[in-house]
């Protein structure tokens, strides 16, 4: 448990991040300020001195308010450093890590990139990522089914990343829970593989609603499957009319050029207003 900010993620471990620090000798370089909310609880102050009898206390506070405050801190930091952050979400086995390793290998001469890897267990994915030469840090969530903004803030303390980079956050494979947790990313990218069934957008509408881009992966397998691409895209747009869609195969490379164009375009947007952008 982190004694600096009181975080209760006892199960979470971040590579290279030890929780031995204390208030006076802590090694965080706190790029993100931890928020401590002070809410104006108008209307219940009069009862606060009453001792033993029970009293009602109005809170009206969003359950995710803490996460959202951490996410805002992360987002501010990414903005200041001209970093484009994408939160990659999918079910397990969609080919996220393969897509990422191909992207890192093919763009390493044109873009500076780093990765935060989220999995319940093992550092296998971070090792696959590092084999491409990119910086990566693994977060193991233990029983946790998603990354949250607080874990990402801590991971950033241990991830060497240059200004004007692209940061990929590979979330835990799960189409439900990561939808609710803002990490401070510019955009969620949902990866759906054609081996999964075209009705996934309707079965997991929150995730497809939250995503700005959908990558339909493994399209090289379409000749062997009964996957109806048009139906799938129709479902996705029904949940999220503005969602952008690219059809790719991370194993053959088909369609990847459009994904790279998307990355470059998003990166240009992330650099707008960044101090060194005009150089």
């Amino acid at each position: 448990m982190c004694t600096t900010c009181g975080c209760g993620h006892a199960e979470t471990t971040i590579e290279g991040h030890d929780h031995q620090h204390n208030e006076h000798a802590h090694t965080h370089d706190h790029r993100h300020e931890h928020h401590h909310h002070t809410h104006d609880h108008s209307g219940h102050g009069e009862g606060s001195e009453a001792a033993s009898p029970s009293r009602m206390l109005r809170m009206e506070q969003d359950i995710l308010s803490k996460n959202n405050a951490y996410a805002a801190d992360n987002r501010r930091w990414f903005n200041q450093h001209g970093i484009l952050t994408l939160n990659l979400v999918s079910s397990p086995g969609s080919g996220k890590t393969t897509l990422l390793t191909r992207t890192l290998s093919e763009l390493k001469d044109t873009l500076s990139m780093a990765v935060i890897e989220g999995d319940q267990q093992t550092v296998l994915d971070a090792e696959r990522i590092r084999a491409t030469g990119a910086q990566a840090i693994q977060i193991n969530t233990g029983k946790g089914c998603h990354l949250d903004a607080h874990m990402v803030g801590h991971a950033m303390e241990n991830l060497p990343i240059d200004d004007r980079s692209v940061l990929f956050i590979e979330n835990v494979g799960n189409l439900v829970c990561p939808a609710a947790f803002d990490l401070g990313e510019a955009c969620k990218v949902v990866i759906l593989s054609v081996t999964e069934g075209e009705d996934k957008p309707l079965k997991y509408p929150d995730m497809f609603h939250a995503a700005g881009l959908m990558l339909l992966n493994k399209i090289d397998l379409l000749p062997h499957l009964n996957f109806d691409v048009d139906q799938c895209l129709d479902y996705a747009r029904r949940v999220n009319p503005g969602i952008k869609v690219l059809q790719v195969s991370a194993s053959t490379g088909e369609g990847m050029a459009q994904w790279y164009q998307y990355l470059q375009a998003m990166r240009q947007v992330a650099l707008i207003g960044h101090a060194e952008a005009e150089r």
Binding site: R55, R58, D62
Partner: peptide
């Protein structure tokens, strides 16, 4: 919505 509305406290 996902909100803590109120608490009964002692």
């Amino acid at each position: 919505e996902m909100r803590i509305k109120e608490l009964e406290v002692q």
